[in-house]
């Protein structure tokens, strides 16, 4: 049923730190690697070695230049499904293939019911859904539902592949419905924001804005060297000879 379920209060999602993301694409490739054999497999690649490469990815990292009065900076911006609280991609689905789980809020697609009408991708403002032209169905981030509850993995590996791969710990996974969880605390502390809040989708994933610029220069430089004084003696003679 594509009507939204009443929620249990648990809201699993990601917190992405735009301050520390270095745009290395490790989360992108880790996501692709896991998910091309996971719940929504395969993540089809069309013409992978040709001139018109195309394919399904759940996670894409953009780079932006953010310029304010305080100066400019490069911001790397990972974009994936935000597992919204009011996901229009689910309610527009005519077949019931798209659904939001009551137990943890993850938005998923039942591939066997999808007719590939693409309306859900029109309804998503974030571009989180990508159509697989090979299989003829829509695909999207599963929040690695096949990892996070997977008893066959070691406890510390039961996080989404993108989170496990991030070398700068810019990606955090947890329950954003619990105000005491580590991710909720992080969002509160760093002023995490929703993307396009004006559209009213109430995304679960939060983005931590880059930390403020500082006008205070770091005191790491050594004192300036004093100019070489013209001296007499041997060194003075060397100096004069070299200066000629």
């Amino acid at each position: 049923m594509t009507c939204l379920p009443s929620q249990s209060g648990k809201k699993l999602g990601l917190v992405i730190d735009l301050d520390t993301c270095v745009g290395c694409q490790a989360c992108v490739t880790a996501c692709k690697e896991w998910n091309t054999g996971g719940h929504m497999a395969p993540l089809t690649d069309i013409d992978p070695y040709g001139g018109h490469v195309d394919g399904v990815w759940f996670n894409r990292v953009h780079s932006y230049e953010h310029t304010t009065e305080m100066g400019g900076r490069t911001v790397n911006f990972p974009r994936s499904c935000l597992h919204c609280e009011t996901p229009a991609c689910v309610t527009v689905c005519p077949t019931g293939a798209s659904y939001k789980r009551a137990s943890d809020g993850i938005v998923l697609i039942d591939e066997d019911k999808c007719i590939g009408c693409k309306l859900c991708s029109w309804a998503c403002p974030y571009g989180a859904r990508e159509f697989d032209t090979d299989v003829g169905v829509m695909k999207k981030c599963t929040l690695c539902v096949d990892r996070i509850y997977n008893d066959n993995l070691a406890e510390e590996d039961r996080v989404p592949a993108c989170v496990a791969a991030c070398p700068t710990s810019a990606r955090h996974f947890g329950d954003l419905g619990d105000p005491l969880s580590a991710v909720s605390q992080l969002v509160a502390e760093r002023g995490g924001v929703d993307l396009m809040p004006e559209l009213g989708y109430h995304p679960t994933n939060k983005y931590l804005p880059p930390r403020a610029h500082t006008t205070r220069a770091a005191s790491v430089a050594a004192p300036a060297l004093e100019p070489v004084r013209a001296e007499g003696g041997f060194l003075g003679w060397v100096d004069r000879m070299l200066s000629n």
Binding site: R60, Y64, H66, T67, V75, S121, L195, M196, P209
Partner: peptide, 23 residues
């Protein structure tokens, strides 16, 4: 509002992919 980067201008520096994708 799309990137959550408040104030100033946000200019796309680099796309995540070199060819056109589904989106």
């Amino acid at each position: 509002t799309a990137t959550g980067l408040a104030g100033g201008t946000v200019r796309s520096l680099e796309w995540p992919h070199t060819e056109e994708n589904y989106l």
